[in-house]
Nucleic acid binder design. Structure first.
Lengths: 119, 119
DNA sequence: CGCTTAGTTCGGTAGTATTGAACTATAGCA
DNA sequence: TGCTATAGTTCAATACTACCGAACTAAGCG
């Protein structure tokens, strides 16, 4: 399994792949949670934090896409897989990109929450 | 025709849709050219500038996706359709987002060009 | 070893993207 | 008016991707 966790070299990471990986509401939510936690997190915990139940296989696939796009790195920690955002590497390669995307996402999310409270 | 050009209100534009629209190399290339030209451009001219021949339908669809995502605005100018990036509006809604994406794209593109010259 | 937990892979279904071919819209000109 | 050329759109078929349940693999613990 571990040998199947492919992490592209930061030089091989493309803008298109990153944007595609983040263009799914669930995946950008995952990245947001991973960044907030500031430590590795597994699939179950992420789904819990997102308050968005999903099948294990679905979660696994989303993590795979994020991983193959170079957005996150995963490693085995005992029984579970711990993932973290490759923030520093990405910042080095594409300065400001991840930040502005996440900032936009958070702005949108908080606006949506506001609208929900007072419809 | 013209009545079929749907432009979402800037408030309805989502991060996911923008990122998806820009996650295609061709589409982000189109946006880049539109920004460089600083004026409206039609499909044929864009394809010409990108040095990437493509079917009319393909071009049309890419423009539609960009348009429906709220990235560009199009209007009829005689025979052709003139499109421009909704840069100011996007900047107001998601500050820095478009800029950093385009900056990343340009960095990647120039790096690729360099590699090509000295393989 | 068997049992539990965490992820991955597989197979099928549903929705979306992409493309060439056919169609529509506009302009120019006799 | 009609004819013709040019620019985009729509259509139908194919290809891709998301999603899920079920079966499989990996690691820890008794």
């Amino acid at each position: 399994m571990s040998r199947l966790l492919t992490h592209p070299h930061i030089r091989d990471v493309t803008v298109a792949a990153i944007l595609h990986a983040l263009s799914d509401p669930l995946r950008i939510g995952i990245v947001n949670e991973l960044l907030k936690s500031r430590r590795g997190m597994n699939c179950t915990e992420t789904a819990l934090r997102l308050k968005r139940p999903m099948a294990k296989s679905t979660c696994s696939q989303h993590y795979r896409i994020l991983r193959e796009a170079g957005v996150i790195a995963s490693e085995r920690k005992g029984v579970d897989l711990s993932s973290r955002v490759r923030a520093a590497e990405l910042e080095g390669r594409f300065p400001g990109l991840l930040d502005s995307v996440l900032q936009a996402y958070r702005k949108e999310a908080s606006a949506a929450a506001r609208t929900k409270r007072q419809p």
